[in-house]
Amino acid sequence: MVRFWRELIKGVVISNPVFALVLGLCPTLAVSTSLDNALGMTAGVLFVLLGSNIIISLIRKAVPNIVRIPVFIVVIATFVTVINLLFHAYVPSLYESLGIYLPLIVVNCIVLGRAEAFASKNPISSSIADAIGITIGFALALIIISFFRALLGTGNISVLGRNLFSFPGLTKDPIVLFILPSGAFLVIALLLALFRWTGVMKE
């Protein structure tokens, strides 16, 4: 059990996939325009990562080295297709706004990276912990980035169609730069620099 929590916390902080390892950038930057998108992407990644980590950990001893990567890709792509169909059927608006970034979870370095580096070498329980930890770390990064982009770029923070709060002044004249694609680069640059400056993360 101790091991479970250790793996989980490791994924969230020390090897945070986005800030520390700088992995999985495409979805992080592309869908961070609103908190809803960030949460939807997190749900997608959690489903795929959890599923693929469990299956790969289960079959890790049966898979010969030569077909390792193809097997991993098939497993991951299966889960991505399943979540894609589920989103299309049950949350169509989210499916629309995530667009091609939902199927692109297949090539998300985080997912394949965890399969290769962790699940293929570890038992199920720690693979589950690893998947949850990594997803929380990913979600944290995504939520922080989209919080700043939505707040500064639109002046409003809303979740699931409900407006949590508006920043007076910004609603009328938002700093459009932040919601533009360039704003994503700006926010992640400043956050990375901040983390290094405060010493939370090493260079």
Partner: peptide, 25 residues
């Protein structure tokens, strides 16, 4: 032939799962 057999089984199971999900959704 074991690697090929294994890969075929994995692909087969994956196709079954996807078709099942598609039928539901």
């Amino acid at each position: 032939f074991y690697p090929i057999i294994l890969l075929t089984i994995v692909v087969f199971l994956s196709v079954v799962l996807i078709i099942a999900t598609n039928t539901i959704t």
